[in-house]
Design a binder for these strands. Sequence first.
DNA 1: CTGTTAGCGCTTTCAA
DNA 2: TTGAAAGCGCTAACAG
Lengths: 332, 332
Amino acid sequence: MEKQAVTIYDVAREAGVSMATVSRVVNGNTNVRSETKDKVEAVIANLNYRPNAVARGLASRKSTTVGIVIPDVTNIYFSELSRGIDDVARMYNYQIILANSEEKNASEVVESLLSKQVDGILYMGNIIDDRLREELDKSNVPVVLSGSVDLKNQKPSVNIDYISAVQEITEKLIASGHKKISFISGPLNQTINSDFKLKGYQNALEDAGIEYDEDLIFAGEYEYESGYQLGDEIRDSGATASVVVDDEMAAGVLNYMTDNNVKIPDNFEVVTVNNSHITLMTRPQLSSVIQPIYDIGAVSMRMLTKLMNNEELETSEVLLAHGYAKRESTKN
Amino acid sequence: MEKQAVTIYDVAREAGVSMATVSRVVNGNTNVRSETKDKVEAVIANLNYRPNAVARGLASRKSTTVGIVIPDVTNIYFSELSRGIDDVARMYNYQIILANSEEKNASEVVESLLSKQVDGILYMGNIIDDRLREELDKSNVPVVLSGSVDLKNQKPSVNIDYISAVQEITEKLIASGHKKISFISGPLNQTINSDFKLKGYQNALEDAGIEYDEDLIFAGEYEYESGYQLGDEIRDSGATASVVVDDEMAAGVLNYMTDNNVKIPDNFEVVTVNNSHITLMTRPQLSSVIQPIYDIGAVSMRMLTKLMNNEELETSEVLLAHGYAKRESTKN
DNA sequence: CTGTTAGCGCTTTCAA
DNA sequence: TTGAAAGCGCTAACAG
């Protein structure tokens, strides 16, 4: 049950050259006479030789592999992000190890990635605790945050300006006359919620002279069911609109309302932020911040390739432009 | 920029033992005096030593890594499947390399997985061509198909009985009096569609003495938009119901109908097969075959662990039980 | 342009 | 119970 039948030695012997020459051919080194090269390539094709990436990694101390830490592949936001990452990685010939992390075990996951000698890490998680931060720091492998933020440690990152984005949509709701606007959040121990999205919401209220009311803040999980379950409390809070941080949750809130004869947008407005195609699937369709999700992934991966290549980054913290798509769940 | 500061040598020297002993401790070999073991472990903790998985893989010729080939991470069916896989892999201490494959480049993807010396491959793709089949066969690494089928080559696989499942839901539609039932498929060059799901649909028609009509067969992509776009033709075909092979497509068909004032289920019925939570998000909610998606992933990964461990498989082609969830898009 | 020779960090006999 | 030593398959100086 040999996995690897034919090695570089076999090719060398068969081609009547040294293994170094074979290595050169395989790695596209130009210092090989073209006759020799052809001969070697013929043998390679013949023997169906495939370089052993593990041996290569050990010898070269590079794995041409990057680790992607993703909190939940089933969440459309993250999976879309990973598509952008994947495409760019492929473009630059990096392999990807996609590791699901439940946030809590993030440092284990990172540790295992590091033991695999990844050349870089793309982190999509929303919680970076001290242990993880330390581990990342002393590992010496470049790290880029993709669609996620860390206040304590300025790692290279790619995001949109969540504060402004949420502020803008909240302002629209205010402009429509709402006084009691609920904020439907993911876990509030996540910086992206507590220090960014919530902040934008608060800014909007403050600018409009509306008092911030904790009873209008609801935290759940990034899931449809979670949004739906929160519906009860949201309605009872007296809120007349919701700013939601996740599309699936927003779909849950919206459906709860329509299921309970609350007309949207006439009697209740809902706006979300990820603009995944979930927003098109609900009826009425969800108004949303437009985020260049795919691009966030792509740009962050591109940054990582530069870092792995020891190139300079012009900007370390990239903020991509966002927009707004008015659909049917809001009046404006 | 050393990735790996401390090696097994450092630990050995520091602990005053040979590297072989350190290796034994790290690998849980019991033939080590417990004092020695404690000493070594102390040093390991002290130096923060982490074994280099690449070197390990080279020496042991095992990578404790499996490759997962997934057609599209953004499709909820596959991402849900991968959750089951991931959980079981974690349980058995296998790392996962998740590789997106666009079906067309599947053999490239597999090749790169093999060069990484994966110990096994879990394949979720729906197209297995001759080149890929050959590559898989001569690689000597075990392969399990997860939620996908291959007629030409009986690889171990985990699925539900698609034929029966689709047949059953088609029969329900027939029982409701429908004569013109459309079949909304993914690409028809995929075996799972052409030889399984379509087959179930045809069986039901045949049993009911309804003539098969090609004009009622519509093929698109596994995407919401694709289903929506097909809506036009479906309606024009005179069909009064749709059997759809993918939840997102089904949501598209359903929304197209309601957007065009076709009342569901009164004037048109829609039934789908994956029972992802998309079926709960639409209004009306989608009736669906119940598939144990997570379990399909979990069981297939479990099978793969057995294969990688050279254990016997009781059954090579596992069919998990399916059910039916009647919701609002059908009368029965 | 090509070959020789050390390793990369670890596992695994084989002896002791 | 422990250590010595030989690789795993490849890259990367260094010679020539």
